[in-house]
Design a protein around this nucleic acid. Structure first.
Lengths: 141, 141
DNA sequence: GTTACATCCTCTAGTCACTGGAGGAGCAAG
DNA sequence: CTTGCTCCTCCAGTGACTAGAGGATGTAAC
């Protein structure tokens, strides 16, 4: 018999808020959790692992749908893992693009702050740069 | 007299979807746009500039509230631009942090994908890493 | 002048991934 | 037995849009 814990304990041990856990159950990301006589949800070790998996995947920016796919893959370990690989690769591409555009933004903000350090809004580059796309130092989009 | 254009033209020239423009007007990010006799919105050069400003700021990751502040600064050019500067600085710090965490994430995804054996899910590092946070190469969270 | 079609209008509701609150029930300690 | 905590369900709200219904207006061709 594995130990069963409450939703509060699950929340604390996985770092997922209580309402979020209930939400995950509601949308079927966690299968319906068994209840006590008093109608309280109980979590065994497997549920906790699944919850930790979800949390980690969310932190890495995977969408709920992608996580759903990853979870079904996890449930059937004899499948080829090309789907998981593809999902991770797609995510990597997204992340790389985001980094590029954030780097461009960083440069722009630096330039803005520099030239904004004196004077008034009338000649404030923050507004100028944002108002006129052509002044971007990098073609990030 | 400046030329007046339709919402469709504004959309095409600024790269903001028509319903989004209407939404911006609704939440007061664009002030109420003048209408034709037939009740159609008209946009002059200033409106287009403002819209481009908003679009650009959104792309750079500014929240609507920050943009609102920036716009009020733009509307009153006799203010010192220390507020805009503060917003830009806060934004820069945020952006730098986001870049850091995305770089850590990129590394992690890269390692995951690299070491995926392309075999079965059972040996797939992608799923394994997601299931166990301790395997993270970097403490990104 | 009329017909066809694109574009526009308002209004409502849906999206994602939660988050928060109301109102009530269960449970463990003192 | 009461106090106080945790839990339950249900409903509404968030941000920043996005989509669709149903109807009005503008324009170009015939």
């Amino acid at each position: 018999m594995s130990k069963k814990v409450s939703i509060g304990d699950a929340s604390r041990s996985c770092g997922v808020k209580v309402p979020t856990i209930r939400y995950y159950e509601q949308i079927g990301l966690l299968s319906a959790l068994p209840r006590t006589e008093g109608n309280r949800r109980t979590f065994d070790a497997g549920d906790l692992r699944r919850l930790a998996f979800i949390r980690h995947a969310r932190e890495l920016g995977f969408e709920i749908d992608a996580i759903r796919t990853l979870l079904t893959l996890q449930d059937d370990p004899h499948q080829p893992c090309s789907s998981a690989d593809a999902i991770a690769r797609a995510r990597l591409a997204e992340v790389e693009q985001r980094i590029d555009s954030l780097n461009a933004l960083k440069t722009e903000l630096g330039v803005m702050i520099e030239s904004c350090s004196r004077g008034q809004v009338a000649d404030c580059r923050v507004i100028e740069v944002l108002a006129d796309h052509r002044q971007c130092t990098h073609p990030h989009h």
